[in-house]
Amino acid sequence: MLKRDYCPTCQYPKTVCICQVISPLQVCTHVIVMQHPSEVNHAKNTVRLMRLVMPNMQVFVGETAEDFTGLQTYLTQTTKPIYVVYPSETSQTASQCGAQADSIIILIDGTWRKAYKILQSNPWLLDYPAIHLEVEHASNYIIRKAKRPDSLSTLEATALLLSTLDPAADTTPLFAAFDAMVQHRLSAMPEDIKARYQLHNKEVK
């Protein structure tokens, strides 16, 4: 079997390179992702796309508090407001808690079960206010299964929150990269498999 050639920039196979749709996005919100180790090399990992579009974001990989000591140190040294993006009984929307664009938002990247495990293993996160998203539409992440139709990918959640914090922010570059990845994945699927990922009976071409 021939070894696939990968683009050194986007890290996708050269046959489905998405570099041509990557456009840098500059925002004043500092985006930090706590990523479960199992997501790092996942073919459908949207954090990889986010880093292409937002090179200034930070990604910390791990599960336990010991894995995130560097992040904890960084957060204790900043003067910016910090918010953890995770729905809970005490979480509020960004508007309710008065979050501003010049803030730090921490997202947890993983399945619901793995994200919950990270949250439980890092009780220090409870020191920061939790915010949840106001999701009005189902996710467009149709190539990855989710238990709930309103479950968003980490990229979609980030884009929605950035738009909430700063209505003038243009999150088009994030969705351009996201859509390119989804379409490339769909184009490589056999028709019968592709049909399983149709969203609301809308044909995906």
Score class of each variant (00 low, 15 high):
63 E>L: 11
64 T>G: 02
64 T>K: 11
64 T>M: 07
64 T>I: 08
66 E>G: 08
66 E>F: 08
66 E>N: 13
68 F>R: 08
68 F>I: 08
69 T>L: 15
70 G>V: 00
71 L>G: 07
72 Q>G: 13
72 Q>H: 13
74 Y>L: 14
74 Y>Q: 08
74 Y>M: 13
77 Q>F: 07
79 T>G: 15
82 I>F: 14
83 Y>L: 09
83 Y>D: 04
84 V>M: 00
87 P>T: 11
89 E>Y: 08
91 S>T: 10
91 S>I: 04
92 Q>K: 15
93 T>S: 15
93 T>F: 15
93 T>E: 06
93 T>I: 13
93 T>R: 15
96 Q>F: 00
97 C>V: 15
98 G>M: 14
98 G>I: 15
99 A>D: 09
99 A>N: 07
100 Q>K: 12
101 A>C: 09
102 D>H: 14
102 D>F: 08
102 D>Q: 14
103 S>R: 11
104 I>G: 03
108 I>T: 01
109 D>K: 05
110 G>W: 06
111 T>F: 00
113 R>Y: 06
116 Y>Q: 06
116 Y>S: 11
116 Y>A: 11
119 L>K: 12
119 L>T: 06
120 Q>V: 08
124 W>A: 07
124 W>Q: 03
124 W>M: 06
127 D>A: 15
128 Y>I: 10
128 Y>S: 02
129 P>F: 06
129 P>E: 03
129 P>D: 05
130 A>D: 04
131 I>R: 00
133 L>I: 14
134 E>N: 11
134 E>P: 00
135 V>A: 05
135 V>H: 03
135 V>S: 02
136 E>V: 13
136 E>W: 05
137 H>P: 02
141 Y>W: 10
141 Y>P: 02
143 I>F: 13
145 K>H: 11
148 R>W: 03
150 D>I: 09
151 S>H: 08
151 S>D: 03
152 L>N: 05
154 T>A: 07
154 T>Y: 03
156 E>T: 13
157 A>C: 02
157 A>F: 00
162 L>N: 01
163 S>V: 06
163 S>P: 01
164 T>A: 09
167 P>Q: 14
167 P>I: 02
169 A>W: 06
170 D>M: 02
171 T>P: 04
173 P>D: 10
175 F>R: 06
176 A>T: 01
178 F>R: 07
180 A>Y: 03
181 M>C: 07
182 V>L: 14
182 V>A: 03
184 H>C: 10
186 L>V: 10
188 A>Q: 15
189 M>D: 12
192 D>E: 14
193 I>S: 01
195 A>T: 13
198 Q>Y: 13
199 L>H: 12
199 L>F: 09
200 H>R: 14
200 H>E: 15
200 H>C: 04
203 E>N: 12
205 K>Y: 11
